[in-house]
Amino acid sequence: MLEVDIASKTYPAVGGPPLLAIEGLRFSVPDGTFACLVGPSGCGKTTCLRILLGLERDFDGRTVLPGGNPRIGVAFQEPRLLPWRTVEENVRLALPKAMRARPLHDLFARLGLDGFENFYPGALSLGLARRAALARAFAVEPGLLLLDEPFVSLDEATAQDLRALLLDVWQARPTTALMVTHNLREAAQLADRIIVLSQRPGQVRGEHLIAVDRTRRTPEAVNAICAEVSARFPGLL
């Protein structure tokens, strides 16, 4: 179980009162399920992920990660590949020592990266670079998957391909996953539950559980889910 209980998180501001980013953000994600965090810009979604990643230590509250101290697979908003290492080196560097030699061919093939193993990230399109970032996140066999708008600024067709790939890889080994997104349709396609946040300071407005099985989420079904969520949470786009 992933448990988040952040009483408050403030950012110091230059020449002004500190900015209260999150106040009383509480939710949990059961093991092996996929949750999406949606909400308006600046409501603390990314801050929440950064706290879970251990990159923000200065906050009031506590978090419990699945299994205590799991390996985390992460996809940041930008691919964040090391430009001076090849795609395969980027993925292998993230692996713990004991897993360094594991074959990665299947994972690369599944994500459509075969043939690109020895490319430097500078030579990749954004779509390919995001695939490489996902490959890295899954290669570590994470106990927790944290995704921060991993498909932002891709054209819709590419984003749709990548969502399908993400689901494919995720379903091969369901991991507790938390994904931040602005895109309600995306959430409706991927998630078991949608956690809706308020305006800043971010707190949970409510949760929407999706009962429809992922394999049966046709475009119409996704529309229906979106309509339902929008009706429950007016003002959320």
């Binding site: 251990g54 985390i72 964040r80 090391l82 560097l93 993230a94 890295r136």
Partner: peptide, 26 residues
């Protein structure tokens, strides 16, 4: 951002130097 990446994926000190810090200083 690369330092954060190294932290999340638990790079060793040697790897942080060799793969993250030194290439940026080239």
């Amino acid at each position: 951002s690369y330092a954060e990446l190294a932290r999340v994926y638990r790079f060793s000190f040697a790897s942080r130097m060799r793969d993250v810090v030194l290439p940026q200083l080239q």
